[in-house]
């Protein structure tokens, strides 16, 4: 397939993923999904999976709280996966680029919610005042879809289209040992993601479970599905013991 069409497909993927975040929310905007899909489009699913996993771990715990917009993983994943595929499956340049690239999407989303979506909102409220149903749908659904198609697809398309040249230029400039070092750093990035997750969950008396999980996987090599089964069991046990406690409290109150 022509690389122009491949790049266009990547641009459309960025739009679909961003719109999924605002619409059906099937979580296809997460790197773990976008990585392999981009890999599929570019003809290298394995590299896509590797990029998807690494970037997913980087952004594991970014939670959209209130109106603060976190770093954007969509364009970052698609473009950096294209970089990795252009580098012949070497993920380190893609990984190094992923973090800076995530700022682009963040800026675009800030612009979106503070400029053109404000405009479509105002037009929509005018349609509401007229009682114009078609107008409401047009300004709430059709118009944002069209504008976002341009705003998210075009930059992604351009970046993917020129990715081979960018990556070649980077490989020429950056020494090999530095690229290896980035790979080593990428292995440690997971620690930041997991620490962020622990911080955002913030349940103080749950630390023993952290040790149990660590013990199960490090010493007994239980895989994640096995650990999930134990997690379900622990939740069930605490629900039952909570119920028992409440019942005995009620009994004491009755006596």
């Amino acid at each position: 397939m022509n690389y122009l069409f491949i790049s266009i497909a990547c641009g459309l993927l960025a739009w679909i993923a961003q719109m999924d975040r605002l619409m059906v929310h099937m979580f296809i905007y997460r790197p773990i999904i976008l990585g392999p899909i981009t890999g599929l489009i570019l003809g290298d699913v394995s590299t896509g999976l590797e990029m998807g996993v690494t970037i997913e771990i980087m952004f594991l715990a970014t939670v959209f709280v209130g109106t603060a917009i976190p770093c954007d993983e969509v364009m970052s994943t698609i473009i950096s996966t294209a970089f990795a595929v252009a580098a012949g499956g070497d993920t380190s340049i893609g990984i190094a680029a992923a973090l800076p690239l995530s700022v682009i999407g963040q800026i675009i989303r800030y612009i979106r919610s503070s400029t053109y979506h404000l405009w479509t909102n105002m037009q929509m409220e005018k349609a509401v005042a007229r009682g114009d149903l078609k107008g409401m749908y047009f300004w709430h659904i059709v118009m944002p879809l069209i504008i976002n198609l341009i705003v998210f697809s075009v930059p992604t398309f351009i970046a993917v289209y020129v990715s081979a040249d960018i990556v070649q230029a980077l490989i020429n400039v950056i020494p090999e040992k530095l690229i290896d070092g980035i790979g080593v750093g990428a292995g440690m990035i997971g620690a930041v993601g997991l620490a962020m997750l622990l911080k955002s969950i913030n349940v103080k008396d749950a630390w023993p479970y952290l040790l149990i999980g660590f013990f199960l996987s490090a010493f007994l090599n239980v895989n994640m599905i096995g650990i999930s089964i134990i997690a379900v069991a622990i939740i069930a046990i605490s629900i039952y013991s909570n119920q028992k406690n409440e019942k005995s409290k009620n009994r004491i109150a009755l006596d």
């Binding site: 349940v203 149990i212 996987s217 994640m224 999930s228 605490s238």
Partner: peptide, 26 residues
Amino acid sequence: RNMTHLAGTAAYLLVGGFSVGLVTVK
């Protein structure tokens, strides 16, 4: 509060499990 607490407990267990596979320091 109860639901977030329970979900948080399960999350701690799983994060402990993730630590070996998702973080590599050598």
